Amino acid sequence: MTPTELAEKLHARDVVLLAGRLLLSLIFVHEGMQLATHFEGAQKAMAALGVGTPLLIATIALQLGAGLSVALGILARLGAIGLGLFCLMTASLFHTNFASQNELLHFEKDLAIAGGMFILALAGSGRLSVDRVLVAMRKGTDGASATADATTTVEPHLSTGVTSLPV
């Protein structure tokens, strides 16, 4: 058995996608929880940076919502795109003082996380995701009554095995 065959048998790709999703989302879920549970302090700190309360609330909602989306694999592609764009904006708005080694490091980390999120958006969440479970449940209830039309071919999606019409 070749390493590729072994990896396919063990579903290594899906396990790695799950681990990557969890690692990438951890920082956003944690930070969103910190901001939400220490809202007054976060509000003061953000005001010092010129960020108002409505944007702080939107940031918390994005970090928690998209972070959980990525972690659980529920619309993970959309969550990953949202968080990737958030990281690019954060880097370009708040971490531009490259004379400070700390700021440069934060800038580079934001770019790296954005890159990981964009790769995840392309790869999808894999088989170990809530989306996959929901599709399987839907196929179970719709599968008995649905018949495939000969003119519309249905192909499995590369990342999740979800069926979709060709574009």
Rank of each mutant, 00 (worst) to 15 (best):
F28W: 09
V162C: 04
G41P: 05
K109V: 11
Q101T: 15
L35E: 02
L49G: 06
F107R: 05
L17T: 06
C87Y: 01
K139Q: 13
L56I: 09
K44N: 09
L10D: 07
G115R: 04
L128D: 07
L105Q: 15
L17R: 03
T59E: 08
E103V: 09
A91F: 03
G50K: 06
F28G: 00
L64I: 10
G116S: 08
V135R: 08
F118H: 00
K139T: 11
K109S: 03
P166W: 06
I113R: 00
T163P: 05
T96P: 06
K9H: 14
G161N: 07
G140S: 14
A121P: 05
G52T: 08
V167T: 14
A76G: 05
T53E: 12
A114S: 09
D142N: 15
F86Y: 15
L18P: 01
A76T: 06
M117Y: 02
Q101I: 15
E40R: 11
M46Y: 15
L35M: 14
L35T: 02
A45K: 13
L85H: 10
T141L: 14
R21H: 07
G67I: 07
H11L: 11
L22I: 04
G115S: 04
V167E: 15
A66S: 13
L23S: 10
T96I: 14
K44L: 10
G52W: 04
G124M: 00
M46W: 09
G115D: 03
S92V: 15
G65F: 06
V167C: 10
L24M: 09
V162N: 02
E5V: 14
V154T: 13
A66G: 07
K9Y: 14
I74R: 02
R132Y: 10
K139V: 07
A48D: 07
A123N: 04
L62R: 09
A36P: 06
G50E: 04
A66V: 11
L18I: 05
K109F: 03
G84T: 01
K109W: 01
G65C: 08
Q43D: 11
L6W: 06
S25N: 07
M33K: 02
G84N: 01
A112L: 13
G41C: 05
Q63C: 13
S129P: 04
G79D: 01
M1W: 14
I74Y: 15
P54R: 05
C87A: 11
A144G: 14
H157W: 05
L10P: 03
T37H: 10
R21C: 05
G115N: 04
G41I: 05
M1E: 12
F39N: 01
M33H: 03
M89K: 07
G143Q: 11
L49R: 13
P166S: 08
F107V: 13
A99N: 14
G20Q: 06
H11I: 07
F28A: 03
A61F: 15
R127Y: 08
G20E: 07
